[in-house]
Amino acid sequence: MAFLNVLPGAISEGLIWGLMAIGVYISYKILDIADLSVDGSICTGACVCAVMLAGGNPIWLCMLVAILAGALAGVLTGLFHTALGIPAILAGILTQLILYSVNLAILGGKSLIAIDIRSADLLLHMSNNPMAIVSAGLIIASTIVVLWLFFYTEVGLTIKSTGENPHISRAQGVNVNLNKVIGLAISNGIVALAGALLAQYKGSANINDGRGAIVIGLAAIFIGLSVSLKIKPNFVCSLIGVIGGGIVYYIIYNFVILLGLKTDYLKMLSAIIVALFLAVPYLKTRYFTKQKPIPINAGNGGGDNA
């Protein structure tokens, strides 16, 4: 019974983190870059949204500025990586650190800013989970549609090819560096949007929001893709899978809390989940692959299927 009580909240939070995981999907899966700046940019999104709401701005403007702030963080990581030649992982870590200071500045030196939920007209809040699920669902659906259309455009196709094969992309006249910057901007913009939703949902922005976000994002991706790739391996299905992964992650999360695990250990649990998902495919090929019997006619084949 207790579990059913926390379920709506778990789904709401899962949707928000699933949206964040879509941002991570773009950098990690499409661009093939493990971008650690998301830990900072989700918090930036939350801080910008909370502070602007406190300033009496309309909610749509708060969220728009949050997205732009996140995109800017992505541009910064992109430029560290492409213009200054810093390895992508390190570029993300640098941005993450810069964002910690920036986020503190946005919060005016405080570590937490509460949103006055009576005066602000929020899209979603934890006091009304059914509505939060609908609002988050609609935002996610429109994000997926926009991304789906975008990745069929001329620019979108070359961003995909940049991640898959930068070599041939350059040979086909694609500005690979520019594409990485654009891709990271989109990725972090989505992550910051998730941050803005998170701030509204919790009714506050905290300087520690988003610590370990990349790990949660990856967990959602791995959980989601392990199912969706088996159903239909296409873009939209993958994104829906990632959202599902976020929800499953939060259901597990809440379940473990109910079982009595101290919340102090939850970050460790997230890391272990991700480590397992990364390790299992490797261990499978390393230790559990049986040698196939050699078929008859196993000469230097391939000649006929030119």
Binding site: F150, Y152, T153, E154, V155, G156, L157, T158, K160, S161, E164, S169, Q172, G173, V174
Partner: peptide, 22 residues
């Protein structure tokens, strides 16, 4: 990526890529 997508990228070599269908 699909064969058609690969060819679509190649067909636009030397042109400015925009937000229109690939």
């Amino acid at each position: 990526m699909e064969i058609a997508e690969n060819l679509g990228i190649a067909a636009r070599r030397g042109t400015k890529r925009k937000l229109r269908w690939g």
